[in-house]
Design a protein around this nucleic acid. Structure first.
Length: 443
RNA sequence: GUGGGUAUAGCUCAGUUGGUCAGAGCGUCUGAUUGUGGAUCAGAAGGUCGAGGGUUCAAGUCCCUUUACCCACCCCA
């Protein structure tokens, strides 16, 4: 034997065991179902994109985290996709004759970021994006928010909040504070820390960044305003109404909540939060972020309007809005909050067909085939071990029903079925075996 | 990228001021129980104590280097 190779994974990458995959696929299934319900259709793009497709879209910091993927002698500069949004923009610009607008699509795929891994943070993780391309009206943004709320509720999250802000309002606030250019990005970054370091922390940091104390006070008043719903918008209008940027942002948000009202989205699931900033630089209008406060695993969803991104590939801008679920954090939270339905077990197998002895193995094989033909998810035990071990195997894997077929049963043309959770055991004719399994599973 | 912590059996960890310190529980396998699982009992397999170097009569135990992982920051899903 050559020396063994240490089995290990690249940093931030994970394997998934069957029990985990069953849960992941449950979550993926719900998300897909709701996307379909809202009329979004699937697309798929490649894992690798040309480097030029990705660069210059995310902002400088983010682009340091893009994985390159070369092979020896490769002529193309390739990178692993960093998100699903920029590939979508490329996709939309590439097939003008095949896409009918408005284009609503979703994509559920892994993306890669070379970050240092942490709790709830990996280098390979799945995103679930849904976007509407070609609609200027806030009705599209409202559908996105409604979609988010429906997915979260369908997954069973009792408490969550879609925070809504606007890039235009943030810009206006910056102008109002006398901050422009790159200093604006720093202002946003400080504001975004609100949840972490609180009012005083943000205030301190802004002062440290060189903003005059009175300006900081005015900015803080704006972003931390505590008023119900639309009254927050009125407050901002009173202060900044004469700014075009602010007026546009406010009008958009007003339209947005009107559409949310029409769509009957319960108001407890969304709120304006002017301290919420999205990092990616391509957003241009309303932005969203969904959070669950306990436990704090960060946000589970982000999105917004990015009207100029497609234009980078098309020459002409195309209004687009959308969102992205960070499905990994949702899966972590589902576990922590115990939101999986009871019937999601550790195995897909419904019945284990045991093998009494080598002489009876042929009958067991036939029985397995019969059960499968009837739609029962069946595993045939494949090692030559005593029956007790076979039960132990079923128990350990969480297989609910065990089928036994010894010489007595074979002679009588019967099958003995046992439900492990309560030990109930019945003998039925071979022809009724599948129906009997169904009954045992149902109760 | 910055700072801190950890590294002993497949997993979770104990190892006291360097001197029977190579251990426990869980898991795995075998048996008690050759037509019936979860419980109990008995037994077995499994580790060059992350790697490399140093101090010492003696090093999981101290020092240095290195790697990996974890936590926080940065940033983000």
């Amino acid at each position: 034997m050559p020396p063994k190779i240490q089995p290990r994974l690249p940093k931030g990458m994970r394997d998934f065991l069957p029990q985990q995959m069953i849960r992941r696929e449950y979550v993926f299934g719900i998300v897909r179902e709701v996307f379909h319900l809202y009329g979004f259709e699937p697309i798929q793009t490649p894992v690798l994109e040309l480097r030029e497709t990705l660069m210059g879209k995310y902002g400088e910091d983010a682009e340091k985290l893009i994985f390159n993927a070369q092979h020896p002698g490769g002529k193309e500069e390739l990178s692993l996709r960093y998100d699903l949004t920029v590939p979508l923009a490329r996709f939309v610009a590439q097939y003008p004759n095949d896409i009918t607008f408005p284009f609503r699509r979703y994509q559920l795929s892994p993306v890669w970021r070379a970050e240092r891994p942490q709790r709830g943070r990996y280098r390979e993780f799945y995103q679930c994006d849904a976007d509407i391309v070609g609609v200027q009206s806030m009705s599209a943004d409202a559908e996105i928010v409604s979609l988010i709320v429906t997915v979260m509720r369908r997954l069973g999250f009792p408490q969550f909040s879609v925070k809504i802000n606007s890039r235009k309002l943030l810009t206006a606030i910056g102008l109002y504070a006398g901050v422009q250019g790159s200093a604006l990005a720093e202002l946003y970054r400080s504001i975004d820390k609100f949840d972490k370091i609180g009012t005083d922390g943000v205030r301190e940091e802004l002062v440290r960044r060189g903003l005059p104390a009175d300006v900081v006070t005015r900015v803080m008043e704006l972003i931390t305003v505590q008023l119900p719903g639309a009254e927050k918008l009125d407050f901002l209008e009173d202060v900044m109404g004469n700014s075009t940027e602010a007026a546009e942002g406010l009008n958009e948000l007003r339209e947005l909540i009107e559409h949310l009202r029409l769509a009957d989205v319960p108001p407890q699931f969304y709120e304006f939060d002017f301290t919420m900033v999205r990092g990616l630089s391509y957003y241009t209008g309303p932005i969203f972020e969904t959070i669950i406060t306990e436990p704090n695993l960060g946000s589970v969803n982000g999105g917004g309007r990015y009207d100029e991104l497609v234009g980078l590939f098309r020459g002409e801008s195309l209004p687009t809005t959308g969102m992205s679920f960070g499905i990994e954090r949702i899966i972590d939270l589902m576990d922590i909050l115990n939101l999986y339905p009871a019937e999601i077990g550790g195995t897909v197998v419904q019945t284990l067909v045991t093998v009494f002895s080598p002489e009876t193995a042929a009958e067991s094989e036939k029985l397995a085939a019969e059960l499968r033909r009837a739609g029962i998810r069946t595993e045939l035990y494949m090692l030559d071990r005593q029956i007790g071990k076979q039960f132990g195997y079923a128990d350990k894997k969480g297989i609910p029903v065990v089928a036994m077929l010894g010489p007595d049963e074979i002679a009588a043309g019967q099958v003995k079925l046992k439900r492990l959770k309560d030990g109930q055991e019945i003998s039925v004719g071979r022809g009724e075996a599948a129906a009997a399994v169904e009954r045992l599973l149902g109760a």
